[in-house]
Structure formats: C-alpha cells, structure tokens
C-alpha cells in the first residue's frame, strides 16, 4: 500500500531507501532520540537502512509509517503507527531544525485522520516521556487525553522512565472534526 497525503506545508509519503541519509542525520541527535522509546543512540546510517528495510509492502494501517517530507528538504521526520500490547500506538519524530513551526501537529493530525478513516479502530494510543512538554502540546491539540502513567524503556537513554499514556478516541476525534 503506497499512500501519499498532502497538507499545506508538507507531504506524508512512503519512506524509501533514499531517506536513509536524512533519517540517520536527524535521529543521531540526542535531543530527538532521547524523547523516543525505540530508537538507539548513537544512530547511524545502518540503523536507518535496517529500519527502512522493515517498511516492506503489505503492512496494515496499524503498521504504517510515513516520511514527513517538506519541499526542498526531503524527509525531516516520521509519523506512523505500530502495534503495542494494548492496541495501535501513534509515534512520531521531527528533526530539530524544524521544531516550533506547527509541522508536527500538522503531520500527526493528518496521519490520525487517515488512520480513523481507513480503519474501524475506536481509539489510538500514544504518550510521551514525562519531560516532553512539546509532544504533550502536540497531542492535546489533536484531542489526545492523558489516561495514566507507566514505566517505559527509553533505548537512547538506556533507562526506564516515567511515561505519560494518552489516547484519542474515535468519538473525540469525530466531535472535533465537525
């Protein structure tokens, strides 16, 4: 399944091997990878290529990742879904030079719309490490609500950290669309 979604400032598209350089450059930044659960640090081109190889055809919406592509820059982040123990989880990252412009909210909101339109899931789970106020702000703008706290391993930090668990229900998503 190859889906391309276009918004005013960016395009969400299938990640390809050509993105390996950008992904390695931008994720090898502790300010980014230190906020993520499943990304090692340091992060090299081999890590990016290994991840891209896992983006094979035939993945379900709940396994789909999009490259966040902006004009003249190429891939500057990723937004996507993965299957967690309790359901589908939204995850994302944006390269540091592009923070503070609302791009992450635009990308994540577009991905969330796509997911609810494509599936009959009644909720999307997400979350953030306790210190990540910027990510919490993104999620609140999309209608995610805090549902609890847990402990989650942060691979880049090699430690288990306090994690704020969030969810967006289909009913909240729908209500905000109208």
């Amino acid at each position: 399944m190859s889906v391309t979604l276009t918004t005013p400032h960016l395009t969400l598209r299938e990640p390809t091997m050509d993105d390996a350089g950008n992904i390695a450059k931008y994720l090898n930044d502790f300010a980014v990878s230190g906020n993520l659960a499943r990304v090692p640090f340091p992060y090299g081109r081999a890590d990016a290529e290994a991840w891209l190889k896992t983006r094979r055809p035939g993945l379900t919406p709940a396994q789909t990742s999009f490259a966040i592509d902006i004009p003249a820059q190429g891939c500057v982040g990723v937004v996507g879904f993965h299957q967690g123990v309790n359901g589908t989880v939204l995850g994302y990252w944006l390269a540091r030079p592009f923070w503070g412009q609302g791009l992450m909210t635009e990308a994540a909101g577009t991905a969330v719309d796509w997911f609810f339109e494509r599936t009959d899931a009644n909720r999307i789970l997400s979350g953030l490490f306790h210190f990540n106020a910027a990510s919490l702000a993104v999620q609140e703008k999309l209608g995610f609500a805090v549902i609890g706290r847990s402990r989650l391993v942060c691979l880049a930090r090699g430690a288990e950290l306090e994690h704020i668990d969030t969810e967006l229900t289909r009913s909240v998503w729908k209500a905000r669309k109208t």
Binding site: R38, P40, D47, A50, W51, K53, T54, L59, Q63, H82, Q83, G84, L155
Partner: peptide, 10 residues
C-alpha cells in the same frame, strides 16, 4: 535494533 522491533511488532 529496528529488525528486533519489526519482529516483535509486525
């Protein structure tokens, strides 16, 4: 590591 994540999640 990404292969391990792919194995567990997909």
């Amino acid at each position: 590591h990404a292969d391990g994540v792919d194995f567990v999640e997909n």
